[in-house]
């Protein structure tokens, strides 16, 4: 998952949640030994460059002591600015804290995180929710993978297993089997997902084949993912959850948002791009080149 990571891009708006995730960023810098970039995109119509520069200089001041740290200030649209910056860096790992919760409904809110997760082909770390004053999970001894799709599941488990091998953490595989009724039969038929808890455990066991010497736990529940996933996370003690881009966001007619199920989750999230097809294509190119 992080073998190619050369740069951690911490996109900040100086909010409380940006401050709250600083310990997690410090941990990533220490673990990956990568360059840290503090990225702030400001609106030139509202903020003057000098003020934005001064705020960026004072934010996460201890990063000045890090072996390799850069502060980057860009003017313009926030989402576009972050996307353009990250798109130029293939080895980037984006840290994207959520916006502070106001407690008020936001019917016209467009989730910037959801848009970036859709657009970018790099791993993105974020949190399901942040309330002012909440402490954030800062450990990664228990890594979870929420498996929703067989094909993507193999790729996710492989990426998580590499990370778990490096850190000596415990790998937890989580799966929620949908309730089966007449209306839901089409889904298992199209996705090849198992239809019962026992078959799901066998299916997850097959995904783990070839991964020896790892501490692995399998957690399966049946019912609605919105209700069961938070329960599984609490029961397993997962501190960091690996999810696919597809399961990280919920699309609707008007907009995409971060999947609301994560608002109830205490764990941090890593949305990983699906590399399965790319890897297959690359292998094909290599084979044809060798021939």
């Amino acid at each position: 998952m992080f073998q190619q990571t050369t740069e951690i891009v911490f996109a900040t708006d100086f909010s409380d949640s940006s401050h709250a995730v600083i310990p997690a960023v410090a941990r990533w810098v220490d673990e990956l030994g990568a360059k840290l970039t503090l990225l702030h995109v400001y609106d030139p119509k509202k903020v003057i460059h000098r003020d934005a520069q001064s705020r960026l200089q004072s934010f996460f001041a201890e990063a000045d002591n890090y072996p390799d740290c850069e502060r980057v200030l860009i003017g313009g649209d926030v989402c576009e600015g972050i996307a353009t910056y990250c798109a130029r860096r293939s080895g980037a790992f984006l840290v994207l804290p959520p916006s502070d919760q106001s407690g008020l409904p936001r019917p016209w809110h467009r989730s910037m995180r959801a848009r970036l997760i859709e657009q970018l082909d790099i791993p993105i770390w974020t949190l399901g929710r942040t309330n002012v004053g909440d402490s954030e999970p800062s450990s990664d001894r228990h890594i979870g993978v929420w498996i929703t799709d067989a094909e993507e599941g193999v790729s996710q488990v492989r990426q998580a297993a590499q990370y778990v091998t490096q850190t000596g953490a415990t790998l937890h595989l989580l799966h929620v089997v949908e309730d089966v009724n007449e209306g839901s039969l089409t889904n298992p038929l199209t996705t090849r997902s198992p239809m019962g808890i026992e078959s799901a455990e066998v299916w997850l066991g097959e995904l783990l084949e070839g991964l020896r010497g790892l501490k692995v736990e399998v957690h399966v529940a049946q019912g609605s993912a919105d209700r069961e996933l938070p329960r599984l996370l609490r029961r397993s003690g997962v501190e960091m959850l690996l999810v696919s881009q597809k399961s990280a966001i919920r699309r609707s007619m008007m907009r995409s948002t971060i999947n609301p199920v994560f608002r109830k989750c205490p764990a941090s999230l890593i949305c990983v791009p699906y590399r399965g097809r790319l890897e297959d294509m690359w292998r094909g190119v290599e084979a044809s080149a060798a021939a």
Partner: peptide, 15 residues
């Protein structure tokens, strides 16, 4: 400071 905030201090110590 890092100890009290449960933050890794090693990147700073290395420098």
């Amino acid at each position: 400071r890092c100890h009290l905030r449960k933050q890794s201090s090693f990147p700073e110590i290395e420098t």
